[in-house]
């Protein structure tokens, strides 16, 4: 009798302990015990009786499939991502990367336009305009670019909240995994081309400043504006291809999205949420209040370098702590 009990226990172990399943298990045990008793009465040995009962049990997987019950592991903490969910997430990531790229382009163009307007004003291009009017124009130029950019950033986040579970631990279904791997492979050439072009734009951008500097100090703001526009192109490209690549990596839990890295990135993202807005505030205050448009753009490369350094130090410390 205990053998039958233990046999059913082991068979039911992987399945969720819902009322329906427990009920089913109890009823099946009853039936098996009835059968066992009768076989014994028919003169079968205990050993034989148990053998027959077990051989006539059937397939528990088939039964659970019929009842539409999933193994406990699949309904528990480990979330499973289906093929359809993975494809949908990919679509959302592509769309949001595109919106973010346009957003970055718009912001950098806006800042560049503001600098051009300010510089033109400095050089008396607006003739009889008062300083206030010229600054109003600069502000308008900024808002025309920056406000839609903010809208784009907000829009880029929509749809993603349904995939919050990807930030935690999850499991990709086999179909979803192979599909995502295929798509990532197909995206590889686009990704590397994008990164190369973006890197070229980024590296070339200071040349504009250099040329402007050679042509005279008065030209510097124009050079800086061109540099920012080029940087805008570079950042937009990085955001686009990097965002899509990041989506694939997140699904496949590669690179920045392995389980250990996820925790690290959560901390670094919190730092970024503070550092970058401060950089923008410094930029605008030094520009509009102190009118140092000629040098204040340097805040962005400086922040970028500092931020990279902070992130680097943090992950190094984490790694050494992990080893200790």
């Amino acid at each position: 009798m205990d053998v039958l009990h233990a046999y059913l226990d082991s068979l039911f172990a992987p399945w969720p302990r819902t009322a329906q399943v427990l009920n089913l298990k109890r009823e099946m045990l009853d039936t098996m015990e009835d059968k066992y008793e009768e076989l014994k009465q028919d003169g079968k040995s205990e050993h034989e009786a148990i053998g027959i009962v077990i051989s006539e049990f059937g397939s528990i997987d088939e039964l659970m499939h019929e009842l539409g019950i999933l193994p406990a592991a699949e309904t528990g903490e480990e979330i499973s991502i289906s093929e359809q969910q993975a494809l949908q997430y990919e679509q959302i990531v592509r769309r949001s990367s595109r919106l973010q790229a346009i957003g970055w382009l718009s912001i950098l163009f806006g800042v560049a336009a503001t600098m051009v307007v300010a510089a033109l004003n400095e050089h008396g291009a607006f003739g009889s305009w008062s300083g206030g009017q010229a600054y109003l124009l600069a502000l308008i130029a900024l808002f025309v670019f920056v406000v839609p950019a903010i809208g784009l950033f907000i829009a880029s986040g929509s749809g993603k909240e349904r995939y919050k579970m990807l930030e935690g631990d999850f499991e990709l279904s086999p179909g979803a995994k192979s599909k995502t791997e295929q798509h990532m492979e197909a995206f590889r050439p686009v990704h590397s081309r994008g990164i190369v072009i973006a890197a070229c734009l980024g590296t070339l951008s200071p040349v504009a400043l250099l040329i402007a500097g050679i042509r005279g100090e008065g030209q510097l703001p124009y050079g800086a504006a061109i540099m920012l526009a080029l940087l805008g192109g570079a950042i937009a490209l990085f955001a686009y291809v990097g965002g899509i690549q990041g989506g694939f990596q997140r699904l496949l839990q590669l690179g920045e999205y392995t389980r250990e890295k996820k925790e690290e990135n959560r901390v670094i993202n919190r730092i970024a949420a503070v550092v970058w807005p401060i950089a923008f505030v410094v930029f605008f205050v030094s520009g509009f209040v102190y009118q140092r448009w000629d040098v204040n753009w340097a805040i962005f490369p400086i922040t970028a370098v500092l931020f990279a350094a902070i992130g680097g130090v943090y992950s190094m410390r984490r790694k050494s702590k992990g080893r200790a």
Partner: peptide
């Protein structure tokens, strides 16, 4: 014909 236990109980449920 011997109906397996699991066949019997999936039929009951259905």
């Amino acid at each position: 014909y011997v109906m397996k236990e699991t066949t019997l109980y999936s039929a009951f449920t259905r």
